[in-house]
Simulated assay, not measured.
Amino acid sequence: MVVVDDDFRVADLHARFVTTVPGFAVLGTAHTAAQALELVAGSAPDLVLLDNHLPDRPGLSVAAELSCDVMIVSADASPATVRGAFTAGAVNFIVKPFTAGLLAARLGAYAKYRQVLSPGAGDLGQPGVDRALAALRQGDRPPTPKGQSPVTARLVADRLRTADQPATAAEVATDLGISRATAQRYLATLAEEGRADVAMRYGTTGRPEHRYSWRTTV
């Protein structure tokens, strides 16, 4: 893997992030578009972590020339920049600054994506293509908090996603056959992650209740 960033300190930091992920190694770092093209040509990496803000030309224009996979990193997350990254062939887009954990999740998902697309896989068909894309997107999902079940988390999320109106923890609990406290815990996590909106509604007794709805703009 090659890491490209105009700031050598940031490049070194991102390189250290990469080395903590099993199965990934940094072949070198570059700080300009010219250096990046030369390094990639000489080392033939599978993946480049490419900053868009480079002193000699934008990273997006470099990405379009590379034959390997690219993840764009940028502090500019405008729609035009994000669209430009995917138009240039990027497999993912990471907004700066980011944590080692976030990068590890993206790289782990990328490794699964490459495994599905291994040369010996043969013709994938639509199911195989779908598996590859699902594997790549898996790293975009926040990890399930410690002590919570991924299965229950998915059920609660699906309950909100398919609902035509906001729901309380009691309603979700009844529908899924779990306790109200459990439903409340998972719903609160979705709200904290920004995947659900929560609003207060006052009942006849004056005691407020939280009503949750899926945030469609996530």
Score class of each variant (00 low, 15 high):
residue 42 G to A: 07
residue 49 L to W: 13
residue 32 T to S: 14
residue 95 V to H: 01
residue 2 V to M: 08
residue 101 G to Y: 10
residue 109 A to N: 05
residue 188 A to P: 13
residue 118 S to K: 15
residue 199 A to N: 13
residue 46 D to L: 13
residue 216 T to C: 07
residue 87 T to K: 13
residue 59 G to V: 00
residue 30 A to V: 08
residue 183 A to I: 08
residue 157 A to S: 13
residue 215 R to V: 03
residue 3 V to F: 08
residue 19 T to P: 10
residue 45 P to H: 09
residue 56 D to I: 02
residue 217 T to H: 10
residue 174 T to Y: 02
residue 196 A to S: 12
residue 78 S to I: 09
residue 4 V to W: 10
residue 163 A to S: 09
residue 87 T to W: 03
residue 26 V to C: 05
residue 201 R to N: 06
residue 143 P to W: 00
residue 118 S to C: 15
residue 19 T to I: 02
residue 167 A to M: 07
residue 80 A to C: 01
residue 33 A to G: 09
residue 184 Q to E: 12
residue 129 V to F: 08
residue 73 V to S: 01
residue 111 A to M: 06
residue 181 A to W: 07
residue 131 R to F: 06
residue 84 G to L: 02
residue 175 D to E: 09
residue 89 G to M: 01
residue 26 V to W: 02
residue 202 Y to I: 04
residue 173 A to H: 09
residue 163 A to R: 01
residue 20 T to I: 05
residue 69 D to F: 05
residue 196 A to Y: 11
residue 190 L to N: 13
residue 29 T to D: 02
residue 96 K to V: 01
residue 75 A to I: 02
residue 152 T to V: 14
residue 83 R to T: 01
residue 110 Y to E: 12
residue 49 L to V: 14
residue 11 A to C: 00
residue 89 G to L: 00
residue 179 S to E: 11
residue 121 A to E: 08
residue 173 A to N: 14
residue 151 V to C: 10
residue 42 G to Y: 08
residue 64 A to N: 06
residue 47 L to R: 12
residue 139 G to H: 06
residue 109 A to W: 10
residue 198 V to C: 12
residue 161 R to W: 15
residue 71 M to I: 15
residue 43 S to K: 14
residue 80 A to Q: 09
residue 42 G to I: 05
residue 140 D to G: 14
residue 88 A to L: 07
residue 184 Q to G: 11
residue 125 G to P: 12
residue 218 V to H: 14
residue 142 P to S: 00
residue 162 T to S: 08
residue 141 R to I: 07
residue 193 E to M: 00
residue 103 L to V: 08
residue 14 H to N: 08
residue 62 V to A: 11
residue 30 A to R: 01
residue 102 L to V: 14
residue 36 A to V: 03
residue 123 D to G: 06
residue 189 T to Q: 11
residue 8 F to W: 04
residue 96 K to M: 02
residue 191 A to C: 11
residue 137 R to Q: 15
residue 42 G to S: 04
residue 151 V to Y: 15
residue 103 L to S: 10
residue 167 A to H: 14
residue 113 Y to E: 05
residue 128 G to V: 02
residue 24 F to K: 05
residue 47 L to D: 07
residue 90 A to S: 10
residue 165 Q to N: 01
residue 192 E to D: 07
residue 36 A to Q: 00
residue 129 V to G: 08
residue 11 A to G: 08
residue 46 D to C: 14
residue 17 F to V: 03
residue 203 G to Q: 04
residue 3 V to K: 10
residue 141 R to G: 02
residue 60 L to H: 00
residue 96 K to E: 04
residue 44 A to F: 06
residue 105 A to M: 13
residue 20 T to A: 07
residue 84 G to S: 03
residue 218 V to I: 11
residue 11 A to N: 05
residue 132 A to P: 03
residue 141 R to P: 06
residue 85 A to K: 04
residue 183 A to N: 15
residue 126 Q to F: 07
residue 17 F to T: 00
residue 103 L to E: 10
residue 185 R to S: 05
residue 190 L to H: 06
residue 6 D to S: 06
residue 191 A to M: 11
residue 214 W to D: 13
residue 115 Q to L: 12
residue 94 I to W: 09
residue 158 D to P: 04
residue 54 L to D: 00
residue 126 Q to N: 07
residue 33 A to V: 03
residue 98 F to K: 10
residue 180 R to V: 06
residue 54 L to I: 01
residue 9 R to Y: 11
residue 179 S to D: 09
residue 115 Q to Y: 11
residue 52 N to F: 01
residue 114 R to W: 04
residue 40 V to E: 04
residue 89 G to I: 00
residue 38 E to P: 09
residue 181 A to D: 11
residue 141 R to V: 07
